[in-house]
Design a protein around this nucleic acid. Structure first.
Length: 527
RNA sequence: GGGCCUGUAGCUUAGUCAGGUAGAGCGCCGGGCUUUUAACCCGGUGGCCGGGGGUUCGAAUCCCCUCAGGCCCGCCA
C-alpha cells in the first residue's frame, strides 16, 4: 500500500476531520526540498479524501519567526532587523537592500512559491502564523503555557537535554524596537507580559496580539491544537531524539490537545552536491525545477519514494528515467492477478497509489497527463524541430496527435525546450549531428559502410528532400548494395551521431540540408 | 557524547511495521520485426538480501553486535 494511503488508514482510526499540515519558515528562497514537505502532507490529505474521510490541507507559513542573521543575499542594512518577525520586515530588493515595505520579507519569498504549488496542483489553505497571533488565536495557549511554565520547562530540559537559562519564559515578547532578542520578562498579568529590553526600556505585550510569540517548540504544539492538526510530516531534523517532535507531543498533551503522530521524512539531495541548503547556494528553486519538469513527473518523484528514503534530485538523465517509469506505469497500469503473492499485490497497490497521487488534478485520468507523446520522443522533436508548429505537424503525421495539441502537451514542450536550452540537460540525451568524418567511426562502419554511403549519396542526388523520399532512398540503397536494412540504419546513426541508435534516421537527415548530409557522407569515401 | 535513516541483481528499487520457498523496472544477452519515434514483440542472464551471532520448525523481515554511507541534536524541510 502507498505510504499516503497507509497514513490515511491510520488517521481514519483516529477519527474526526483530518487536517494535514506543513510549516515552512520563509527565511529565504524556497527550493525543491520544500516541495517534499508540501507534497508529503498534501498527498496524505488526498489519500484521506480518497478514503472517504473529511480532510483539509493547510500550509502554515512561519511568518512570525524572527530573522536569525544577515544572509548572504541580504545587505548589511538587515542587521537592524535581526530578531524581528519576518512578517514585519521589508522585503529585500534585487540589490539586497530593504525595500519600501509594501511587501513583507515573508511574502516576498512566499508568493513565487505559492505559484509553483499551484502548478503542481497543490492549493492549500494558507495560514500566515503572524496573523493567528495578531487575531489572538494563540492567546489561550500562551496563557496556559505561562501557567504551566515549570512543567514545560522540565519537559524540554529532560527530553532535549538542553538546559534553559534562568530567564527562560514560554513567551518571547517583542522589545521597544520590535526584536525578540534580549528581552527579559519581568512579570505576567493576564493578558499582559511585562518586560525590560536590552536598551533598558520597559514595556508590556498583549498576548492577544502580535507583540510576541511562543518559543518554537511550544508554538508548534500550540498550533496543532489551534488548527486541529492531525498529521504533519516534518523534516528529519525535527525527528531526532530530543528534537522538536519529541517535545511537541507531550507539550501538546499538557496544553490539552491531541498531537499528531510523529512522522518524519528524509531530505532531497542534489545529485553529487549534497543536501539542499539555502545558505550554501546550492539550490534549485521550485520555479526553476518546474520549468524543466512536468508537474506529474515532479509529483511522481516524491510519490514513488518512501518518506524515509533520500531522494536524489537530478535534472540530468535520471529525469528521463523517472519520466519513462511514470509513462510505462500509466500506459500499462499494474493490476492484481490471481496467483500473485501477497508482496506482489502490495507492490501493485503501491504503484497504483503513486500514479494516482501524481496527478496534478485529483482524480484525473493519468493518461491525459502524457498527452500521447513520450518524454523522450518529445525531447528529440524539440531538439530537431525549431518551431512548435513543426513539432505538432510531425506528431500529427506520426499519428500521436489529432487536431490541436492539449494545454498539457504545449506546457510539456515548453518545459522541454527550456530544459534542453539550459545547462541541466544531460549530454547523452543531446542530439548533436556531426559535421565531419571521425576515424573511429570510419573503422566501425568499415568497407560495407563506405559502399552503402556511396550508394546513398548517389540515390539522394535527385528526388525530393522530404522524410518519405529520404526514407525510401535509405531502404532502396540498402537493398541495392546488399546491406541489411538494420545495418544501414546503424551506419547512418554512427556517422550522424557517433552512436548506434537514434531518432528516426529519415527525420534526422531531413532536418539537415542536402549539401550538409552529402558532404558528411562523402568525407567517408573521398580523401 | 546521544539519536535517526539507508545498505537487497551492473543500476533504481519492492518486500521489513503484522517472520513462511527473494519480486519488479532499467541495463545486458539472444531471437523476431522487408518504414527504427533512443521504438515494439518474445525469450534469457543475473541476488550467500552489507557482515557476524542469537531467537525460531522456519529470518531480508524480530533481538544483539559490527562495518559502510548519509544525516540530526540553537534555527533550517
Amino acid at each position: 500500500m502507498h505510504w499516503a494511503d497507509h497514513t490515511a488508514q491510520r488517521l481514519s482510526n483516529r477519527g474526526g476531520p483530518q487536517v494535514s499540515c506543513s510549516g515552512i519558515t520563509p527565511s529565504g528562497e524556497f527550493h525543491v526540498g520544500h516541495l517534499r514537505e508540501i507534497l508529503s502532507a498534501e498527498m496524505i490529505h488526498r489519500a484521506c479524501l480518497d478514503a472517504g474521510l473529511e480532510s483539509e490541507y493547510v500550509f502554515i507559513v512561519d511568518s512570525m519567526d524572527p530573522l536569525r542573521r544577515v544572509y548572504d543575499f541580504l545587505s548589511d542594512s538587515y542587521e537592524r532587523y535581526i530578531g524581528h518577525p519576518l512578517a514585519y520586515i521589508p522585503a529585500p530588493g534585487p540589490d539586497g537592500e530593504p525595500g519600501d515595505g509594501s511587501n513583507s520579507y515573508a511574502e516576498h519569498f512566499l508568493n513565487p512559491f505559492l505559484e509553483s504549488l499551484e502548478e503542481i496542483g497543490v492549493s492549500p489553505r494558507v495560514i500566515m502564523n503572524h496573523e493567528t497571533y495578531e487575531s489572538g488565536g494563540f492567546a489561550e495557549s500562551i496563557d496556559r503555557s505561562i501557567s504551566m511554565k515549570v512543567e514545560i520547562r522540565e519537559l524540554i530540559e529532560s527530553i532535549s537535554g538542553r538546559e534553559l537559562d534562568d530567564g527562560w519564559f514560554p513567551y518571547n515578547p517583542r522589545d521597544s524596537k520590535g526584536s525578540m532578542d534580549g528581552v527579559t520578562v519581568t512579570g505576567y498579568e493576564k493578558p499582559f507580559v511585562h518586560w525590560i529590553d536590552s536598551h533598558g526600556v520597559e514595556g508590556r505585550s498583549d498576548i492577544r496580539g502580535g507583540d510576541g510569540k511562543l518559543p518554537w517548540r511550544v508554538d508548534w504544539a500550540a498550533r496543532w491544537i489551534i488548527h486541529g492538526v492531525t498529521c504533519e510530516p516534518a523534516g528529519k531534523d525535527h525527528g531526532a531524539a530530543g528534537g522538536s517532535y519529541d517535545t511537541g507531543i507531550p507539550i501538546c498533551r499538557l496544553l490539552g490537545g491531541k498531537p499528531p503522530d510523529k512522522m518524519t521524512y528524509e531530505w532531497i539531495q542534489l545529485k553529487g552536491m549534497g543536501a539542499m541548503s539555502s545558505s550554501s547556494g546550492l539550490t534549485i528553486g521550485p520555479m526553476e525545477a518546474l520549468e524543466l519538469v512536468p508537474p506529474e513527473i515532479m509529483r511522481y518523484i516524491i510519490a514513488r519514494s518512501k518518506m524515509g528514503r533520500h531522494i536524489e534530485f537530478d535534472t540530468g538523465s535520471s529525469l528521463f528515467q523517472a519520466a519513462e517509469e511514470y509513462e510505462r506505469l500509466v500506459a500499462e497500469p499494474p493490476e492484481e492477478e490471481d496467483g500473485m503473492s501477497k508482496r506482489q499485490r502490495v507492490a501493485v497497490r503501491t504503484q497504483k497509489g503513486a500514479i494516482r497521487l501524481s496527478q496534478s488534478v485529483r482524480g484525473s485520468e493519468p493518461s491525459e497527463s502524457i498527452g500521447g507523446v513520450s518524454f523522450s520522443h518529445l525531447s528529440m522533436l524539440a531538439q530537431i524541430k525549431k518551431s512548435d508548429e513543426v513539432v505538432w505537424d510531425s506528431l500529427r503525421k506520426s499519428g500521436h496527435l489529432e487536431g490541436d495539441p492539449s494545454t498539457s502537451l504545449i506546457g510539456r514542450l515548453a518545459k522541454m525546450r527550456s530544459w534542453i536550452g539550459g545547462s541541466h540537460f544531460p549530454e547523452d540525451g543531446r542530439v548533436r549531428i556531426l559535421t565531419e568524418a571521425r576515424d573511429e567511426v570510419r573503422e566501425e562502419i568499415g568497407q560495407e559502410g563506405v559502399v552503402f554511403l556511396e550508394g546513398l549519396c548517389l540515390a539522394l542526388e535527385d528526388g525530393g528532400w522530404d522524410y518519405e523520399s529520404i526514407g525510401a532512398c535509405i531502404r532502396e540503397t540498402a537493398d541495392k548494395v546488399g546491406t541489411p536494412r538494420r545495418m544501414g540504419y546503424t551506419i547512418l546513426y554512427r556517422i550522424l551521431l557517433g552512436r548506434d541508435y537514434g531518432p528516426k534516421a529519415s527525420t534526422l537527415i531531413g532536418e539537415m540540408s542536402r549539401d550538409d548530409f552529402v558532404s558528411l557522407a562523402r568525407s567517408y569515401f573521398q580523401e
